[in-house]
Nucleic acid binder design. Structure first.
Lengths: 153, 153
DNA sequence: CCGATTCATTTCAAGTATAAAATATATGTG
DNA sequence: CACATATATTTTATACTTGAAATGAATCGG
């Protein structure tokens, strides 16, 4: 009997995972789609800009890749493109010739402002089906998982 | 005052979205990592195999791409690789020369059995921080969002 | 049966992602 | 100082992903 209970618990978690994945994919796809059709940009670029917007003094490449939890090489490419668009720029770091400080340009900051406003509205709309009280409870549950995973890692 | 309440609700949903994204990325990364290091395979290949395992009679390419919610061209590439590994095969469809039926090979079925067992254990472990009762509640909340999004789309 | 449309799939171009190797620089230890 | 090691970034190879174009086959209305 304990075996059956255990098996059942496992299935519930598997189902929860599949639903979690499905939901976040659906929201992510919708956001990606709107960024593309309405602003001609992408989610990775938005994410990098968001990180840079929060650090006006600039971020080193490694710090950027750590915060976004993506590989170093990946950040190189995305920053390359933001730079080509004139939305970000690399600066040498005084005292460390290995490092690069990345910052939003004025144009990048302005553009990100527009994007961020739209993005927040979209999220609001897409997640609108969740009542406020429930949102708080779900966050609690996810917090447990996220914290647990961080410790593991 | 209603404006402030509205703004606050928005922020809560944005925070919920960011947490949802972070959690599912963390779980996904962990799964991807283990599939790679322990079995030398990838999540997309696992997903395709899982869909095929549920339909032993085979699936057409379009049906596969619809179920996994990825583009047609994407499925082409993944099935190409599964075929090269000897885990799946394409068959002509009697009566429709446009279509292809994809099936797991015997070897693919056996391999997937191993993968699926490990996968379920991993999910169980990774999501273990969520108590059973909470899992059910979170699923409820996510259900609302997912259903809502399907209608929209 | 013929032309238009739809459908199933592949191909293509571009972007995103990773792990691993390479490069260049910095730092610490004896 | 010299050498080992660590750090910051880029490069490379490979895979995944998308949207759009191309190809080939089916179907439908006249």
């Amino acid at each position: 009997m304990s075996v059956e209970l255990h098996a059942k618990a496992g299935k519930t978690r598997l189902r929860l995972w599949l639903k979690l994945l499905k939901t976040s994919n659906a929201v992510e796809t919708a956001l990606r789609d709107r960024l593309r059709t309405e602003f001609g940009t992408t989610l990775p670029r938005f994410d990098v800009m968001a990180a840079l917007a929060r650090s006006p003094e600039g971020l080193k490449m490694t710090e950027l890749s750590r915060r976004l939890r993506v590989s170093n090489g990946n950040v190189t490419g995305i920053v390359d493109r933001l730079e080509a668009e004139g939305h970000a720029e690399r600066h040498a770091v005084a005292g460390d010739r290995r490092a690069m400080e990345v910052r939003l340009t004025g144009r990048g900051r302005a553009h990100f402002g527009t994007l961020a406003t739209a993005h927040e509205e979209w999220v609001n709309e897409l997640m609108g089906a969740i009542p406020e009280a429930e949102a708080a409870r779900i966050m609690d549950g996810l917090d447990h998982v996220a914290r647990d995973l961080e410790e593991k890692q």
